[in-house]
Design a protein around this nucleic acid. Structure first.
Lengths: 134, 134
DNA sequence: GTTTGCACTTGCAAAACGCAAGCAAACCTA
DNA sequence: TAGGTTTGCTTGCGTTTTGCAAGTGCAAAC
């Protein structure tokens, strides 16, 4: 176990996913429900394959994601969020809302967030339910 | 300006504060309203002084914090959150709530979060108002 | 006017990152 | 069933970032 810097909740959280890539992996899993290794590599940010492997391992180690057999092929792997990872949805939503206020973001994302703002609680509840179902 | 990796809101956010230290600086400023350079160094996580200087510069550059003259001494500096930084409060609250569910956190923080959960909206609204006032 | 405090800067070793290439197991194709 | 392709990684290696310790310059205190 990586040494934790303090018992502060924020600090402990950052110890796990406080880097430039982990939350992007979580994001991909929240939008796609499940991803293969190759899916993550296809993300527009262009994560390096060794970094991806390291992050996936770390996220699994910390119980945010889990690895499953692909139903169609032994060569493929499926990654998906655990309940602990799914519970990051509210954090992810707030990040999106903050970013929307201060950055230029794609029109489709903007439209989506407009919906979110109409009923944040409802969106999150429905989103988490959907993620748990998959 | 640091190159942005994509136009995804999450990615753009992480480009700015996606590291192990930035949100801890924001946290300190949210709880203390204003901090000197030395205050940040005193935080339990023990940030190195060169890293602190780099992060403060980066956060100021990106408009999350601002530097002010200390009213009592020219040798001191005061850092505080800008509106853009204050707007991260909802993100910070959700991180705390997530962490509370999955980590062991200090009793006083736990008690505080119990209050937050009673009226999250209200807490955030009041907190932001307070931060803007200072 | 010398010491102390404060906000940094500098030097350097260690760790993390990022790119490119390699690799084994599964799979597909003829 | 042989040979190429896809998939999920691992390895090497140069570059960047981090972290520790020491140093610097200015302001205030004594």
């Amino acid at each position: 176990m990586k040494s934790q810097r303090s018992d502060c909740p924020v600090s402990q959280s950052l110890d796990i996913w406080g880097d430039k890539w982990s939350l992007l992996i979580i994001r991909d899993l929240m939008t796609a429900k499940q991803c293969t290794y190759g899916d993550f590599l296809k993300a527009p940010e262009g994560i390096a394959t060794n970094i991806l492997a390291a992050r996936l391992f770390q996220l699994e180690e910390n119980g945010l994601i889990e690895k499953l057999d692909h139903p169609e092929s032994k060569a493929k792997v499926l990654y998906k969020l655990t309940p602990k990872g799914i519970d990051l949805l509210p954090v992810m939503v707030e990040i999106n809302l903050w970013a929307e206020k201060y950055f230029n973001i794609p029109a489709d994302r903007k439209a989506q967030l407009k919906e979110v703002k109409k009923d944040k609680e409802g969106f999150i509840k429905a989103g988490m339910k959907e993620l748990r179902r998959s």
